[in-house]
């Protein structure tokens, strides 16, 4: 398969970026999107040019490192996958593919397609945990947790922190990311103790970092590689009202 690629190039955070056009040929349909970029980079290195920088690590859809806004969709035109799990068979031979970095005030570009997502870490640091120290905890089976609750918590806990929700949202809102963590912990009895403090601190941090507001558009849910539902946002809203108004 052959493709024309329009890729955002930007030397560093301060530099002015631009789109550059590249061509790749003879790409196997079984190859992943990142492997396609690897091949382009190999070409560029052969020509002694700077390869395209993009974040990636595990290449099996769990580390949340890879990003890329491909033809108007975070992680490209497949559902429930990250870019590393997107395969070239999802594209038409000869297609022109636009590749942009995540765009959000809270995610400044570092280089080319690499953005700084440390804002997510800061939100978690504000309270996205149960403040238990090592040791001195009860037996794991001391608190039975209904299976349904545990499953719902797991659904939310699957978030990989990739930022696709922010990238997809027309408002660059981080509500789904924050809601996933708030929900995961609020659903479990262990998380109840700090639930009020947690949701207030995390929402305040989210607002402070310059993410947009939620307009319940649902783009986040549609693009989440782990298919986390916006029911979690509703749950976070409830938790937030409970914490703020009672």
């Amino acid at each position: 398969m052959d493709f024309t690629l329009k890729i955002w190039r930007q030397e560093n955070a301060k530099a002015k970026g631009r789109f550059e056009t590249y061509h790749v040929t003879n790409i196997s349909p079984d190859c992943s999107f990142l492997e396609m970029l690897d091949q382009l980079n190999e070409q560029l290195i052969q020509q002694k040019q700077m390869p395209i920088c993009f974040d990636h690590d595990c290449r099996e859809g769990i580390c949340g490192m890879c990003s890329l806004y491909i033809n108007g969709r975070p992680h490209g035109n497949d559902t429930g996958v990250t870019t590393c799990q997107l395969h070239m068979r999802r594209f038409k031979d000869g297609e022109t593919i636009w590749i942009e970095p995540w765009r959000a005030k809270a995610f400044p570009v570092i280089r080319d397609l690499v953005v700084d997502r440390s804002a997510f870490d800061k939100i978690i640091q504000a309270g996205g945990y149960i403040s238990v120290s090592t040791g001195g905890v009860p037996d794991a089976n001391a608190i039975p947790i209904p299976k349904e609750k545990a499953e719902l918590a797991m659904d939310a806990a699957q978030c990989i922190g990739c930022g696709a929700c922010v990238a997809a949202c027309k408002n660059a809102s981080a509500m789904l990311f924050v809601a996933a963590k708030v929900s995961h912990l609020a659903l479990l009895p262990q998380g109840q103790v700090e639930a009020k403090r947690r949701v207030k601190a995390m929402v305040a941090k989210m607002d402070e970092l310059g993410f947009g507001n939620c307009t319940n558009t649902g783009a986040c849910e549609a693009e989440c590689p782990k298919e986390i539902k916006i029911t979690n946002i509703a749950r976070m809203n409830r938790e937030f009202y409970k914490a703020s108004l009672t």
Partner: peptide
């Protein structure tokens, strides 16, 4: 101890219908 610790941290391990791990 690890399992105890992780459950206390809110790790959503698989559970039986009884609610136990």
């Amino acid at each position: 101890c690890i399992i105890d610790q992780c459950v206390a941290q809110g790790v959503p391990f698989a559970r039986e219908y009884s609610g136990y791990l």
